[in-house]
Amino acid sequence: MVPLNWYMLLSAVVFTIGVTGFLMRRNIIIMLMSIELMLNGVNINLVALSHYLQDMRGQILTFFVISVAAAEAAIGLAIIIALFRNKATAHVDEVQEMKG
């Protein structure tokens, strides 16, 4: 039996890699993929807790997270296409019109 702490540690590492990638990368597509990475880290944690606590609620929550991630990916990619049409760039540091 694998201890529950290992799953929580794995999910924490995947989540942190997602956060770090979001803060470090210049390409906006890879920033969106880092968000997917964070959601997947949370999903691992939810499914592991659901298995170890013998409760289905975690897996139901995973189901909702996956559907919200699908909606988020679609809208994010539409924003990228609109951005590329207006600025012809996918770099976050060249998009600074809304800076105060």
Binding site: T16, I17, V19, T20, F22, L23, M24, R25, R26, V92, D93
Partner: peptide, 12 residues
């Protein structure tokens, strides 16, 4: 990577 990547890595 963006210019301020060490701060992002530290935060992570």
């Amino acid at each position: 990577f963006i210019g301020g990547w060490p701060s992002g890595l530290t935060f992570g």
